[in-house]
Design a protein around this nucleic acid. Structure first.
Lengths: 149, 149
DNA sequence: CTGCGACCTCAACTTAAGTTGAGGTCAAGC
DNA sequence: GCTTGACCTCAACTTAAGTTGAGGTCGCAG
């Protein structure tokens, strides 16, 4: 293995500048295990340049709605995190597109339901689909279940 | 404790049961000013029945992505919160549909960008649309932005 | 030598939307 | 008269994704 040249490494300030992510957030990502660094003799973090791409992946994933925890799992699934290949990127992209599709579908359904409901005042009725989303929308917590008035 | 005389009023437990919202959340909503109650002689909360509808409105609004703060503003805008009319409901519904439309558009754009990017590996490039969403997507604060030193 | 700027650590704070728990009251049922 | 269940208050805790601030180190320029 060839030893990497100095120019392969960048400081946290440069990483921040290149990615648009604040230094404190980068520290935070590192604490969470999303990125890794080495230290130089002054105890300053040194990142291999490919970390720019990882941070960029994180940004995109966050925008599609993934939590950092999700993203960590994705990253851990990469065969070689040091070299994110075109295939890796494609696979992630497709997974994320799926996720986006789901979200879009959910919102569209919600909107359609709202259209059904507008004007009928059914908000007060037991059978309103908006108020009894049961299986169509798997929103996390305790949704309304019953509406008798 | 519940007198027939005032069948218009319901306890917090009943409100919770009817809406599927936990008692603690209902207390919370009340602290936030989203709903209001009277107290009986035992200092128990009593809600007029129409509060069921308000709580339902809150649920739907939350599912379309509004924060409680937003919702409070909407509710304060109602001419008479004690009687949410068909017109009120229509107006809210249309506003919420707009909001949903915006969200759907944003997600769709993001997905299209991702389609453009998949396979080109441009994630590593400075000019990638995904990484520089600037004006196309107005995500709240999380997107990459230039931090000029 | 002094100052500056980039970096370091660690702890505490932030926001949203609640939840959890301790300790207390009240009315009803047995 | 005691227990039970529904309710009360208030404070502290939770999660996510960081931010902010205090206090400290390092190395280079003047």
């Amino acid at each position: 293995m060839q030893k990497k040249l100095i120019s392969e490494w960048i400081s946290v300030g440069v990483l921040s500048e290149r990615t648009g992510v604040s230094v404190s957030a980068l520290h935070f990502y590192e604490r969470k295990g999303l990125i890794k660094s080495q230290r130089n003799t002054s105890n300053h973090r040194q990142y291999p340049k490919h970390v720019i791409r990882i941070v960029s992946l994180i940004q995109v994933a966050q925008r599609t709605g993934f939590s950092l925890e999700d993203i960590l799992l994705e990253l851990e699934g990469l065969p070689n995190r040091a070299r994110v290949t075109l295939e890796d990127w494609e696979a992630l992209g497709l997974r994320w597109q799926d996720e986006l599709d789901k979200k879009i579908t959910q919102l569209t359904e919600l909107k359609d339901m709202m259209a059904d409901c507008i004007g009928c005042g059914c908000l007060s009725l037991e059978k309103c689909r908006l108020l009894n989303p049961s299986d169509t929308l798997g929103e996390k917590g305790a949704g309304p279940q019953r509406m008798t008035e």
